[in-house]
Amino acid sequence: MTTTSDVREPDELYEQAIAVYGGALVRLARGYEADADKRRDLLQEIHLALWRSFAGFQSDCSLRTWVYRVAHNVGATWTIRQRRSRPQVLLSLEDAQPPPIASDADRQVALARLMDLIRQLKPLDRQVILAYLDGMDAAEIAELTGLSGGNVATKLHRIRIVLTRSFQGAGHGRA
């Protein structure tokens, strides 16, 4: 985790954030938008919001938390906005029941199915699963989302059940 205790210029912070978390932002955008052209627009919005946000950067918050909060909040706003033009019923983790994939499915198939699952979820559940997949622990997810510790634990438990049931053996096939 990167923490910043010194005062730095917004441009410098932005460049550092992109150098470290640029890949994570692309993954995050893929979780929010399936269409490649629109995803580019979403990513541009995330970059723009991030750059603008650094004018008010406070060093009491880690750079990672800052970047993820901005990116997820832009992503959630994007989802809400897109639903007005592309109505879609979003599911909670409790209702998501993706069918299991073949045990010899390769990584690409598993990834595509994982994307489908993520994009079906409501913004908050989507944020939790994206943070979990990106390697955040329960405490970090609670800080990021504002969920209570109990709710994060419940959601993570549910995520593990859904993923285990649907993706057991995923990635054993050819990459």
Binding site: S53, Q58, Q127
Partner: peptide, 18 residues
């Protein structure tokens, strides 16, 4: 919403405000 609010709020706070 200004981006700095997005960074200072977690998703629940931000969504609630919006």
């Amino acid at each position: 919403a200004v981006p700095v609010d997005m960074a200072r709020s977690n998703l629940i706070e931000f969504q609630r405000t919006e």
